[in-house]
Design a binder for these strands. Structure first.
Ligand SMILES: [Mn+2]
Ligand SMILES: [Mn+2]
Ligand SMILES: [Zn+2]
Ligand SMILES: [Zn+2]
Lengths: 137, 137
DNA sequence: ACGTTAAATCGGAATGATTCTTAAAATTAA
DNA sequence: TTAATTTTAAGAATCATTCCGATTTAACGT
């Protein structure tokens, strides 16, 4: 998924193409990082002086609903990143300093379902936290 | 860890034994569930009509600092449960309806460290979400 | 190009969980 | 009994997020 595909996805579902949406998506496309609403706001604010937080939150929620962004909650804040696509289900190491991620290709759910008969599984979360080599120096 | 041990842990560190602390701990000891501050408040409120939210939050934070409770954040709210001890590191299935947990004895970090050379790993989270057999009916 | 309309944005107010304050009253540990 | 800690009270503050009414804009048909 890239910015262009994301925009097409929006239009296909009756949502409008706006400069702010494009710029928000471009931010994520460029970064491979988990960003908070504030991160996004701060970066777009330079180009859109009158920017409202509502616009950020509304669009982040929209993008998440559309499957364009994926979200995780870290220390009480929602963090978003471009949805990983193109290969199989996987998980992430997340740098708590810069938000950068590294893919973990295995999924701990593999071979675990037989232990959970009778349970209705709606989701799972596997994340590794720390500092990436860059942030370690 | 049980209520008695938790109380000893508190006293050893200069904190006092109070009825409310005992009752809070007993709630967790009895339930094997993740509870929110509100859950705890609502249950204790019956016995302590003048109970303050401040007391709940203060003691939950204290218990967490002491390692008596463990915490996870689910949809923006802190959830606490009695710290699992007595056997090796493990993870949990968490029922999103009633908070009940089931132990998952494997850890997805096993054999994963060689993929993360150069990373400084400070933690990880593996949780499975859904409905427990009781809540499925 | 123009008008219509639904969608998007803005600015600010509201929300909800949590934390913090200060002072007085209650409880605990010695 | 005394001193230290805990709790209450009542509230204010914080912070991320959501909601609202008014205004602007993108998309579509003419
Ligand atoms: Mn990925
Ligand atoms: Mn356990
Ligand atoms: Zn980093
Ligand atoms: Zn359940």
């Amino acid at each position: 998924m890239n910015v262009h595909e994301a925009i097409q996805c929006l239009k296909k579902n009756g949502f409008k193409q706006t400069d702010k949406r494009e710029d928000m998506l471009q931010l994520f496309a460029d970064s491979d990082k988990y960003l908070t609403a504030k991160d996004v706001f701060d970066q777009l604010k330079e180009y859109y002086p009158g920017l409202s937080f509502d616009t950020i939150y509304r669009n982040l929620a929209l993008f998440e609903n559309m499957g364009i962004l994926e979200m995780t909650e870290l220390s009480g804040e929602k963090h978003f990143r471009f949805t990983c696509a193109g290969h199989q289900h996987h998980h992430h190491f997340i740098c708590l300093e810069c938000g950068k991620t590294k893919e973990i290709d295995s999924c701990p759910m593999d071979g675990l379902m037989e232990n959970l008969k009778g349970y209705d599984i709606s989701g799972h979360k596997f994340e590794i936290y720390g500092r990436c080599p860059n942030c370690v120096e």
